[in-house]
């Protein structure tokens, strides 16, 4: 085996050490009955809960519902956020007019809107998608506006020297230069959408991964709760991976830059 190969194996082994120890301790504690099942179910029980839910189809249907909510909310919030952020970034007047109000609203934690939205929109999909959309809207706007404002002055000057019209300046200079910042906003927006989806489903829902967690808690089935925590982690990782891949493709020029 090559030197780097051996080193990689060593790193992997060391990295698996702590999880293995944790798992062993967890199993031991559960097997000895030191903690009641309602506080710490055995790893095997969590695995069983995961398999049961997978077999019955509950896992898939609830995951899809959660993903759909995140998808709808994020799509609405991100699209609106790109537009509004561009407005704030491009026009000084709009910024002066709208920034103070927007910044004040952005200070309110997104889930704090849920109780009010329940009164106004009811407890259904509309409420959840709205709050998820708002949660992803805020960081997209902030980063879009900032990214546009931070386009280096020499680049803008170049546009003027080459007598680009405003549209050409926007599409050839301003937006491409702002792409890294735009992606930061999208990433934060997606993370917020994901967090808020779980919160909204915990708070008021009869379907979705968050609902399964709330349900498990009410019935004191901690194995179900833990199983869903694992599922949330894995699905979250996959969703992030997709965005990272898209980002990589769009930012190829940046990797080539010295």
């Amino acid at each position: 085996m090559s030197r780097t190969g051996r080193r990689r194996v060593a790193t992997l082994t060391v990295g698996l050490l702590v999880p293995t120890v944790l798992l062993v301790v967890w199993s031991a504690v559960a097997a000895k009955g030191w903690l009641p099942d309602q506080l710490l179910p055995a790893p095997a029980a969590v695995w069983r809960a995961l398999l049961e839910n997978a077999a019955s189809g509950d896992l898939l249907s609830n995951t899809l519902i959660s993903l759909q909510r995140v998808g709808e909310g994020f799509a609405c919030g991100a699209l609106a956020g790109l537009g509004f952020g561009a407005l704030l970034g491009l026009s000084r007047t709009m910024r002066v007019l709208l920034d103070p109000c927007f910044l004040l609203l952005a200070q309110v934690p997104p889930l704090a809107w849920i109780p009010l939205l329940i009164l106004v929109l009811g407890i259904d999909e509309g409420m959840k998608v709205t709050v998820i959309a708002w949660a992803s809207f805020v960081p997209v706007v902030l980063n879009m506006a900032q990214g546009i404002r931070d386009v280096p002055a020499p680049l803008r000057e170049l546009g003027r020297v080459l007598t680009f019209d405003p549209w050409y300046t926007l599409t050839r200079i301003v937006l491409p230069a702002a792409v890294p910042s735009i992606f930061t906003g999208l990433r934060e927006g997606l993370a917020n959408a994901w967090q808020t989806m779980v919160a909204a489903e915990l708070f008021a829902s009869s379907e979705g991964l968050g609902y399964l967690i709330a349900y498990g808690r009410q019935l004191f089935q901690l194995d179900l709760v833990l199983a869903m925590v694992v599922v949330l982690g894995v699905v979250g990782l996959l969703v992030n991976g997709v965005l990272a891949l898209a980002e990589q493709r769009l930012l190829r020029w940046q990797a080539l830059a010295p």
Partner: peptide, 14 residues
């Protein structure tokens, strides 16, 4: 990777 609010039920039990 786990969403923050997924910890709420666990923490409330612990």
């Amino acid at each position: 990777q786990v969403a923050l609010f997924a910890w709420v039920p666990l923490l409330s039990m612990w």
